[in-house]
Design a protein around this nucleic acid. Structure first.
Lengths: 190, 190
DNA sequence: CCTATTTCTAAACAATCGCTAAGAAATTGA
DNA sequence: TCAATTTCTTAGCGATTGTTTAGAAATAGG
């Protein structure tokens, strides 16, 4: 009965995500989104409600992408420490594709909004953080021969998590070799 | 001959810096600046040229502040490792005053603009980075009994530097104890 | 005093922001 | 073919952006 859409939601969401990731959410205008997504503003609002809704879908899209590219391989791996290192190195590649250094969309968004981030967006982000921490916990147990108590493991996990945020920021202006050196040093003690 | 100014430049610069630090540069409007600086827009433009010039002066103000509060004490200290730890802990306090977690203005600005940061602003930022790295180099030599070759020390310095950026971001949403644990673990290997 | 110089106030500039209204174009069932 | 429904195009809404202008208020030297 109705007219057919001339776009696919997941495709335009991916393009919006790329823009938000690169420029930040509030520094990405609806005009630019309209241009890069290839659909006009009416269609964006019809499909996503408002800019906040679009950013939320873009964050989901990012999470799916990084989960598939980085988190699942980490989960599947069996060699503990080396797997964590691979996650960190691949995280760098993921954060800067074809010469453009974007950092991590999650970290960027935290830094953009601080504590005043939208509640739904925050929940979406925390879900990935929880998943990552859960998998890291498992890998740290794999990495150590002797048994570790839960507190110690949690410290390790937080240590890696905060280090990843450092990598996210510094990947935007430091040399790759310096970042690799950081990863090596950071993993020496696990 | 002329009329006298009703404000002092360093005072209004400090107030602008606080706003930029908390909200980011592009998310701080001239109207808000006018309100918080206590002078009107004409005076801002007469005194600082444009918003970019104001941001530059604000960055200089931040650098002076953090240099005096954190870097100089670090430089004066003699106990190497403990001094670095104190710098990191005080960096946390400095990044979040009276319950408001702002992170580091330098890190925030990198994350806001990425590689496309204004050249003058970038130079201003790199100057502090260079100073910090120079002092850290000295402290690491202090901290170790045996002699270290320059490459190794540079790795330690980069390691601490990237860790500080992780602290800047995560300080905006993580618990203080988790951040302290991070600092302890980070310094274990030096 | 008067006049030159500077800083103030207040208003407005064009451009852009997120968002929406009005109607044409397209697709389907009847 | 006709009518119903949805998506499209186009234009514009009011608000806010960074910035500037016109003129009043204040301070000094002559």
């Amino acid at each position: 009965m109705p007219r057919k859409k001339e776009y696919q939601k997941d495709e335009v969401t991916e393009k919006a995500m790329q823009l938000f990731w690169k420029n930040g959410i509030s520094n990405t205008s609806m005009r630019l989104l309209e241009k890069q997504m290839g659909i006009n503003q009416f269609s964006i609002y019809a499909c996503f409600g408002d800019k906040k809704g679009l950013a939320l879908e873009a964050m989901r899209c990012y999470k799916d992408k990084i989960t598939q590219s980085l988190l699942e391989p980490l989960r599947q791996s069996t060699d503990g420490k080396e797997a964590i290192k691979k996650y960190c190195v691949d995280f760098l590649g993921f954060s800067s594709s074809n010469g453009i250094h974007k950092g991590c969309f999650l970290t960027n968004t935290i830094d953009e909004y601080g504590a005043e981030v939208d509640e739904l967006l925050k929940q979406e982000m925390l879900e990935y953080v929880d998943n990552l921490k859960e998998v890291l916990t498992e890998k740290i147990h794999q990495a150590t021969s002797h048994t570790l108590d839960n507190t110690t493991v949690a410290h390790y996990v937080n240590y890696i998590f905060i280090s990843l945020q450092g990598l996210s920021v510094s990947s935007q202006f430091m040399k790759k070799q310096e970042l690799i050196n950081f990863i090596d040093m950071m993993l020496q003690k696990i």
